[in-house]
């Protein structure tokens, strides 16, 4: 009754350094290094190797053994949606496909990817639907700002309407203080009576 075979992932700074040294380490490091002169590249690689070896020697054993916890995986997965299911957060989806994607996130975090890099990778492969808001800054700003712009326009329209009403009151009722005084019970009663009488009199039909 085995659900998923989990590999224990070791957070490995040396591996990260090695990825910088050799892009083929780590399956998702797809961007090729720019071409440079061989001698200069060799020097840089040698320096990276030395640095990596030094780091391995200097890193305490506990740090080398640290694992990516489920909570770390879920922290990233909860900000994404299942690429195939219907609007279900990736951390909550119970399908095998989502379990596999969570495993991928675990692997990537283990390889030193940041949360944003993981999300960017998923967006590249599955599109913007896997994140709650687009990663592209322009699209993101558009998405978030648009409702406020629309609401702002509605507010301007409302203010304009209210101002028009007020101007209408000032120009047509200079000597009528009715609107500025709080309505007394008698006034309200009269108003209701008048309204009801109008109702009884009826309006125009179609």
């Amino acid at each position: 009754m085995s659900m998923h075979n989990r590999q224990i992932q070791v957070f490995s700074p040396p591996l990260y350094l090695l990825r910088r040294l050799c892009p083929s380490v780590g399956v998702r490091a797809t961007a090729p290094l720019p071409r440079k002169s061989v001698s200069r590249e060799m020097i840089i690689r040698s320096l990276w190797v030395l640095l990596a070896v030094a780091f391995v020697l200097a890193t305490p054993a506990s740090a080398q053994d640290s694992t990516i916890t489920d909570d770390q995986v879920n922290a990233v997965a909860s900000e994404m949606y299942c690429p195939v299911c219907e609007n279900i957060p990736l951390d909550a989806c119970a399908t095998q496909a989502c379990a596999d994607w969570r495993q991928e996130i675990r692997d990537m975090l283990g390889e030193g990817y940041t949360s944003d890099e993981v999300k960017a990778d998923f967006v590249r492969r599955f599109g913007d639907r896997v994140v709650g808001t687009p990663l592209d800054p322009t699209l993101r700003a558009l998405s978030v700002v648009t409702p406020y712009v629309l609401a702002g326009l509605a507010l301007i329209a409302a203010v304009w309407t209210v101002l028009r009403w007020r101007m209408g009151v000032k120009s047509s009722a200079a000597g009528v203080p009715e609107f500025n005084a709080p309505p007394t019970p008698e006034t309200e009663s009269d108003s209701l009576r008048a309204r009801l009488e109008r109702d009884v009199a009826g309006g125009t039909g179609l």
């Binding site: 949606y81 599109g127 913007d128 639907r129 808001t133 699209l139 978030v144 406020y148």
Partner: peptide, 16 residues
């Protein structure tokens, strides 16, 4: 209009 499939999720709603 953008030839993209943007679905806004919890993050958007919690922001706006």
């Amino acid at each position: 209009f953008l030839n993209a499939n943007i679905t806004l999720g919890t993050e958007y709603f919690q922001l706006v």
